[in-house]
């Protein structure tokens, strides 16, 4: 049984790869596998076209969208990795798409036009990493206060913070 399912999953991935090659002949996608999980690295310049193509080949749900700061990772040339976890709800096929970003150009197109569920996920990535998404309908911080200055999940941000809490404005009852 397990062999059959892995074989069919490999077959499905190959079908996806062929269809993507037809849809995006000019884009070089870098495929890899780890513990039966398929990953693909997309060029950051073609991100939106890639995402639209992923949706066209059946990945109709954006399960998760997150980022990783590679500052202290070692042996990497890039600063940020943005990760899109995609799922085909009918077949259960998963795909993890990644792009790499470097300062100062931390602007990428928003995926909200493809999957509207990307809305809060993108706001959270901006909130924590300072990666900007263009074309987002309501772009601002999600969890932290709007006046917050730093991006706390970046590796150069200390775990104990930079003393922001000491400066939190205290609103008295009369002002509220």
């Amino acid at each position: 049984m397990p062999n059959e399912s892995t074989n069919s999953a490999t077959g499905e991935i190959e079908a996806v790869q062929t269809r993507l090659a037809e849809l995006l002949p000019w884009v070089a996608l870098d495929w890899s596998q780890f513990r039966n999980q398929t990953r693909v690295i997309c060029p950051a310049g073609d991100l939106l076209k890639c995402l639209i193509a992923f949706k066209a080949v059946g990945f109709d749900q954006l399960t998760d969208l997150t980022a990783v700061d590679l500052l202290e990772y070692g042996n990497v040339n890039d600063r940020f990795e943005v990760v899109y976890c995609l799922l085909n709800v009918d077949t259960g096929l998963r795909l993890i798409a990644k792009i790499y970003l470097n300062e100062p150009n931390l602007t990428i197109p928003s995926a909200t036009s493809v999957w509207f569920g990307a809305d809060w996920l993108e706001r959270e990535v901006y909130d924590m990493y300072g990666i900007l998404f263009t074309g987002h309908p309501n772009f601002k911080r999600l969890l932290l206060p709007q006046e917050f200055q730093s991006f706390p999940l970046r590796k150069d941000y200390p775990v104990k913070g930079r003393g922001e809490r000491h400066n939190f404005p205290v609103i008295t009852r009369a002002e509220s």
Binding site: F34, R35, Q37, T63, D64, V68, V83, C85, R94, I96
Partner: peptide, 19 residues
């Protein structure tokens, strides 16, 4: 390496992306 693994938690898909 990095991995995304999820379980069916009572509330929905609870996943962890670990690097």
């Amino acid at each position: 390496e990095s991995i995304y693994a999820a379980t069916e938690s009572p509330n929905g898909e609870l996943g962890y992306y670990i690097v």
